[in-house]
Simulated assay, not measured.
Amino acid sequence: MVVGNDALRRTAAEVLERRRQPILAAYRQRLAAASDDLAAAADLIDSYTTQADVLVREALAELRGAPTDPLSTPPPTVCADAVELHPRECFRAVIALADIVLADALEQMCGQPNQSAVLALVADALTRTTLTRLLDSSSRYAAGLMNEVHQAQIAERSLIARELHDRLGHSLSAAYRNLEAHELAQERRNEDVDRRVVIARESLHDAVGYLRVLIADLRLSQPLGSLDEALANFLSTVETGGTRLHTEINGDESWVPPEVLDEVFLVVREALRNAVAHADARVIRAVVDITPHELRATVADDGVGFDPATARDGSGMRAMAERAAAVGGRLAVRAAGRQGVSVELVVPLLAVGAGVGR
């Protein structure tokens, strides 16, 4: 007699449900008897057993319902107290669980009608749930490694920033102050200041400014949280003279991956800094438009302008272009004689989101 598939699935679920506790007990005994470090860690044994129970319950749900498409299944939830393990260890644990489940089911169904079909259904349900769990475990483990790398980079950048500030920054500032004091002393005695001293002081002033920018960039290692706030904080530290500065953010910043938002801020900040320092403008305007598929940032001024062809070798312009390229975007600089300058950054968010994620 041929039994319907629904009836076979119910039979398989009944067998697995009835034997769930004995299976978990056998699994725990097997873990405790293992000869590696796992046997010495009670918390790991508890975590493995808890996760095994979750897998068996998910296999039961699979048997009692219609098989789901793995591509449409959301990632499984993880217990808050679960211990993160190397994917290889998870795979070993899953194999051990599968051995116990199938051996127990085979023993329970021995000599029963449709034995092979029921065992196949149990194996299929367990395979689906365990593979999903293994994939999730591997993803979490890889994410953890990437986070460790990121934290190491943050620590290294912070160290470099401290060394630059404490050593080079101190020396440059001291040299600048001494030259400034020498220049003032000469003026008080009504003596001409050596032009070479003036040039040296101006060069040191520029060097200190660039050093501060470099230190700020090195310390910008955490996601901004808000582009609007970051720009406002930057503008609060800028001496603009008679220049009016306006910033405008349109759209939802949550559409932009944090890594991209950081780079956008650095590009916009550099463009604003250049405009303030060199444009001699009455108005500088920064506008960032964000849509689900694109971010477009424009910094425009009504200043004296410049020839873009002669400025491309500048470190600031080159850095902005490199940051744009790093997130899959493009940078365009437009200048028409003395009609001001426009710097535009365009980043396609869909392509970025597929590679970076949020």
Results as ranks from 00 to 15, higher is better:
residue 89 E to R: 15
residue 61 A to H: 03
residue 325 A to H: 11
residue 139 S to C: 11
residue 202 E to Y: 09
residue 211 L to A: 01
residue 29 Q to D: 13
residue 220 L to N: 13
residue 275 A to N: 01
residue 314 G to C: 02
residue 116 S to H: 13
residue 178 N to C: 07
residue 84 E to G: 10
residue 65 G to S: 01
residue 120 A to K: 05
residue 17 E to I: 09
residue 334 R to M: 11
residue 225 G to H: 00
residue 332 A to I: 12
residue 236 S to I: 00
residue 232 A to T: 15
residue 325 A to K: 11
residue 140 R to Q: 01
residue 80 A to L: 14
residue 164 L to W: 05
residue 214 L to M: 10
residue 150 H to G: 10
residue 318 R to Q: 12
residue 323 R to Y: 01
residue 198 V to H: 07
residue 220 L to Y: 06
residue 252 D to G: 04
residue 126 L to D: 00
residue 91 F to L: 14
residue 67 P to N: 03
residue 307 D to V: 12
residue 66 A to E: 15
residue 23 I to E: 04
residue 141 Y to S: 11
residue 229 E to D: 14
residue 254 S to C: 04
residue 14 E to W: 10
residue 37 D to K: 11
residue 123 A to R: 04
residue 137 S to K: 08
residue 348 P to A: 05
residue 120 A to R: 07
residue 330 R to T: 15
residue 343 V to Y: 13
residue 228 D to M: 03
residue 151 Q to K: 11
residue 156 E to I: 10
residue 258 P to C: 10
residue 282 R to Q: 15
residue 331 L to M: 15
residue 158 S to G: 15
residue 111 G to V: 06
residue 236 S to L: 00
residue 137 S to V: 09
residue 133 R to W: 09
residue 59 A to W: 00
residue 310 T to I: 09
residue 61 A to F: 03
residue 191 E to R: 09
residue 331 L to W: 12
residue 172 L to K: 05
residue 354 A to H: 13
residue 271 A to T: 07
residue 174 A to S: 14
residue 260 V to G: 03
residue 42 A to G: 11
residue 278 H to C: 08
residue 43 D to L: 13
residue 75 P to T: 07
residue 112 Q to Y: 07
residue 136 D to S: 09
residue 252 D to N: 14
residue 26 A to T: 07
residue 174 A to F: 09
residue 155 A to R: 09
residue 112 Q to G: 12
residue 249 I to F: 03
residue 84 E to Q: 14
residue 102 L to V: 06
residue 217 D to R: 11
residue 231 L to P: 02
residue 126 L to E: 04
residue 13 A to Y: 03
residue 205 H to E: 13
residue 338 R to A: 15
residue 358 R to S: 13
residue 268 V to F: 08
residue 345 L to D: 06
residue 3 V to W: 07
residue 332 A to M: 08
residue 141 Y to N: 10
residue 77 T to G: 14
residue 327 V to W: 04
residue 168 L to Y: 12
residue 323 R to Q: 03
residue 297 A to K: 00
residue 112 Q to D: 11
residue 150 H to L: 12
residue 209 G to R: 00
residue 55 L to A: 14
residue 205 H to A: 11
residue 282 R to T: 15
residue 68 T to I: 00
residue 101 V to N: 02
residue 327 V to P: 03
residue 346 V to F: 05
residue 53 D to Y: 06
residue 190 N to V: 07
residue 10 R to D: 15
residue 293 H to G: 04
residue 204 L to D: 01
residue 93 A to H: 00
residue 58 E to L: 05
residue 280 D to Y: 09
residue 251 G to T: 04
residue 322 E to Q: 13
residue 185 A to L: 13
residue 335 A to R: 06
residue 217 D to C: 05
residue 293 H to L: 03
residue 148 E to I: 14
residue 250 N to D: 14
residue 328 G to A: 12
residue 69 D to N: 13
residue 183 E to M: 13
residue 42 A to I: 10
